[in-house]
């Protein structure tokens, strides 16, 4: 197992109940996992716990051979070697695309940095956008640059927080195909959270359904979502159309 999460629990200071309760998950190397749940189910919190942006009240997270956190240790986010693509991409507005990507390569030599920027830009098909600023890019391009920036330092694990929520429907379909291709070509283990079953089905090797901070189901898209469109009767979460209304 590459990622091993055991008995994870978390509570926000002002809330009475746990946001995450006894969450357990193992992930193989190179696997793409989707955490699917409605808003408020705690899916983004799980991502933040894995990233180290929140500290769990209980539980362990292991990535590779490294213990990211336990009841006695806590590795800071910058030391985890985990990459993340944020919901609103969080591209630094005062830096060009190239500088954004180089940002995570601070210890690399100048030559290696330049080569790596070229590689990841080629991967996301945006080689010509090196000198642009984020505000000069479309939503889809920003997302691909955010992915390139997260991939550049060669993270052990890549996290995506609602990666398609800022894109319109047509672009969403095109980009998720491309995203799967890119992730698979790099072989990086990935977790993305979404409230959209279509995203999960198109991208993930396995889906974890989360409800009120607890794992409700784990399985392949086939096992959980089936192949026909009649999700409503069988699904623990509402289908996309309903959940968006």
């Amino acid at each position: 197992m590459f990622v091993h999460i055991r008995n994870l629990a978390f509570k926000y200071p002002n809330s009475k109940d746990n946001t995450i309760n006894d969450f357990n998950l193992t992930i193989d190397q190179g696997e793409i996992i989707s955490i699917l749940g409605e808003s408020g189910s705690g899916k983004s919190t799980i991502l933040r716990l894995i990233a180290g942006l929140e500290m769990p009240t209980n539980g362990n997270i292991m990535v590779g051979d490294h213990c990211m956190c336990s009841n006695s240790t806590f590795t800071q986010p910058e030391k985890r070697g985990v990459g993340m693509v944020f919901q609103d991409y969080a591209l630094f507005p005062h830096m060009t695309v190239e500088d954004n990507i180089k940002f995570g390569l601070q210890k690399w030599s100048r030559k290696d940095k330049k080569n790596r920027v070229g590689e990841v830009l080629e991967l996301v098909n945006l080689e010509d956008y090196r000198k642009r600023y984020p505000f000069e890019l479309s939503g889809g391009q920003q997302q691909r640059i955010a992915l390139a920036r997260a991939l550049a330092p060669k993270p052990k694990l890549l996290l995506f927080d609602e990666p398609f929520s800022n894109l319109d429907a047509d672009l969403q379909i095109r980009i998720r195909e491309e995203l799967r291709r890119i992730i698979k070509s790099t072989g990086v283990t990935s977790i993305f959270v979404t409230h959209d079953q279509d995203d999960s089905q198109a991208l993930a090797d396995r889906i974890v359904v989360l409800r009120e901070g607890e794992v409700a189901q784990v399985g392949t898209a086939q096992e959980i979502l089936g192949t026909d469109c009649n999700f409503a009767d069988r699904m623990p979460v509402k289908p996309r159309v309903l959940s968006r209304v």
């Binding site: 990233a51 180290g52 942006l53 800071q76 986010p77 910058e78 030391k79 985990v82 990459g83 993340m84 944020f86 609103d88 969080a90 591209l91 630094f92 005062h94 940002f103 995570g104 601070q106 920036r149 997260a150 330092p153």
Partner: peptide, 23 residues
């Protein structure tokens, strides 16, 4: 978000402040 993005890219809180937040 920018601070968190910077930390996920390997910068400490202080470096994130000087390279991102302050600007």
């Amino acid at each position: 978000n920018f601070t968190e993005a910077s930390r996920m890219l390997g910068m400490s809180v202080t470096k994130s402040f000087f390279k991102v937040d302050m600007k």
